[in-house]
């Protein structure tokens, strides 16, 4: 996988250098500019995978830049980094066409995780291998490996696991998981999800997988990486 190239638009030089340094260590290449004009210029000459955008910039509003780029059909993912955490600010940002909204202050691992999530979005990435703990899932081949050994799994189970892995560390709602089952075939009984999840857990336990699948009653399921690794 090639290195992801990010454009950071932030007028606070000290914060910008800290973000650059942090993301650098997480394996991103970050270009930095301090103004709307600078951002527009950088976007013309370079192709970026993602833009990190502060809202209050010296020569204009970040949201205006988002709208302008979306009108120009530029589909580059945009993550807004802002001090504006008002009740309506997030909705305003997403309505303007941003893909995600992160309120300052934030931690670098969280920022990096959001960036990766945006880059994994359909259309923004190719078929790839998802790795969490000692599990890896090849999204093209539809195979699952635990600790280097391929394990047996039905297409439904692979599909379930894929959804959990893509959102590792987050709760995936039941409807989204059921969607994975429906896409396989038409007949899904009311507790098909529970049954399938239970079989998947048994298989992973049997293969000594170090991830944990937790139930959030009334909401969905979440897959967590082992606690020992950084998270």
């Amino acid at each position: 996988m090639s290195i992801m190239r990010l454009l950071l638009v932030e007028d606070n030089a000290r914060l910008a250098s800290l973000i650059r340094e942090g993301l650098d260590r997480q394996g991103f290449a970050v270009d930095w500019c301090e103004s709307v004009a600078g951002a527009e210029h950088a976007l013309k000459i370079n192709a970026y995978d993602l833009m990190l955008l502060d809202l209050g910039l010296p020569d204009g509003e970040g949201l205006d830049l988002v709208r302008k780029l979306r009108r120009a059909k530029l589909m580059l993912p945009i993550l807004i980094l802002t001090a504006r955490g008002g009740l309506d600010d997030r909705v305003l940002g997403l309505d303007a066409g941003a893909d995600d909204y992160l309120i300052k202050p934030f931690q670098i691992p969280e920022l990096a995780a959001r960036c990766r999530a945006l880059l994994r979005r359909p259309g923004a990435s190719l078929g790839t291998t998802l790795i969490v703990g000692n599990i890896s899932l090849d999204t093209a081949e539809r195979t699952v490996m635990v600790g280097g050994h391929t394990i047996e799994a039905t297409p439904r189970e692979v599909s379930l696991l894929e959804r959990l892995l893509r959102r590792a560390g987050h709760v995936v709602a039941k409807p989204a998981l059921e969607g994975a089952l429906y896409s396989m075939d038409a007949e899904v009984t009311p507790n098909a999800l529970e049954a399938c999840m239970s079989r998947l857990r048994k298989r992973l336990n049997a293969a000594a997988a170090d991830v944990q699948i937790r139930t959030v009653h009334g909401v969905g399921y979440a897959l967590f990486a082992p606690v020992s690794t950084d998270g």
């Binding site: 800290l18 934030f106 931690q107």
Partner: peptide
């Protein structure tokens, strides 16, 4: 206004 300096502190 405190959020940006807080970000800097945290990072």
């Amino acid at each position: 206004e405190l959020r940006t300096p807080l970000s800097i502190m945290q990072l």
